[in-house]
């Protein structure tokens, strides 16, 4: 079973999956009446892969990249975001979010890192949507399946977007695909970080490696193994419990607001239409 899990994570035909993802982007964007997308480019691998896929799907003239550094953002993040835009030859804007973030936190000088990080993520979302309206574009998301499942995101921040081509790829699969589509090696190989404060790394914060996380997640989610089965095949019970707790506790982040039902049909419950209704 352990070897099945490892096999299951591997994408056999990456050229085919690239085609699936680019077809998805092209069709979902164009049939909604758009040609362009805006993408926040952080310098990390998720947004780099997304930007590469968007350019393959829509052409470089239809992709707008935004880098939105705060004063503590690492220099390499800013440089790598520029590098992605340069390679792809896309319209690129670097918008520093320091003034508005600092102006707000002058009111709350003791605010902790999480408050500050969340505020930054939501500020970036707000800028992406401003650009989307200005440029007549959709916001393309960059959340991978691992972070969606454990809730490693800011509600209405980085997890808010219109379409997401990489949300069914675990982080380790993002690495595979990024390497395949030509994302520079130094972006694929660097330690993943939300870069919300200096020295932050995802794996440090989550408390385990993406490789282990993804194996537990694919076992639990895709293969529907139970906790006991995951432990039986050799995963540390403490780690398994931590992962499963993160999944359960973050369910609210994956859902829209819940509505109190009083009528026959209720918008979030039994008013069931796909978003692509009529498209």
């Amino acid at each position: 079973m352990r070897s099945k899990i490892e096999r299951e994570l591997h994408i056999k035909d990456r050229a085919f999956i690239e085609k699936v993802l680019t077809h998805f982007i092209r069709e979902e964007v164009t049939k909604a009446g758009f040609q362009k997308v805006v993408v926040g480019i952080s310098g990390g691998v998720d947004s780099a892969l997304t930007a590469f896929l968007a350019v393959k799907a829509l052409g470089k003239e239809n992709v707008i990249g935004l880098s939105m550094p705060y004063r503590t953002s690492s220099r390499s993040s800013v440089e790598d975001a520029r590098l992605v835009a340069e390679i792809l030859e896309i319209e690129f804007h670097e918008i520093k979010i320091t003034p508005q973030i600092d102006a707000y936190f002058q009111l709350f000088p003791d605010a902790d890192n999480v408050r500050r990080g969340n505020k930054m993520a939501r500020e970036r979302m707000s800028i992406l949507y401003d650009f989307a309206h200005w440029k007549g574009a959709l916001v393309i998301g960059t959340s991978n399946k691992s972070e969606l499942l454990i809730g490693y995101s800011t509600r209405w921040g980085d997890n808010a977007h219109d379409i997401n081509p990489i949300g069914d790829l675990y982080k380790t699969q993002v690495w595979e695909m990024a390497e395949f589509v030509g994302v520079p090696e130094r972006i694929v190989k660097k330690k993943p970080s939300a870069d919300l404060w200096p020295g932050q790394t995802d794996e440090g914060e989550i408390g385990l490696s993406y490789r282990t996380l993804d194996q537990i997640l694919i076992g639990y989610v895709d293969l529907r193994l139970r906790r006991e089965e995951l432990v039986e095949i050799g995963f540390d019970p403490v780690v398994v419990d931590r992962v499963l707790t993160m999944v359960r506790n973050s369910q609210y982040k994956r859902k829209l607001p819940i509505i109190c039902k009083i009528a026959q049909r209720t918008v979030d419950k039994d008013f069931l239409y796909l978003r692509d209704w009529g498209l």
Partner: peptide, 11 residues
């Protein structure tokens, strides 16, 4: 609906 990425050239 397509699913499964363990084959070549198709879902």
């Amino acid at each position: 609906p397509g699913r499964g990425y363990r084959e070549e050239g198709m879902f």
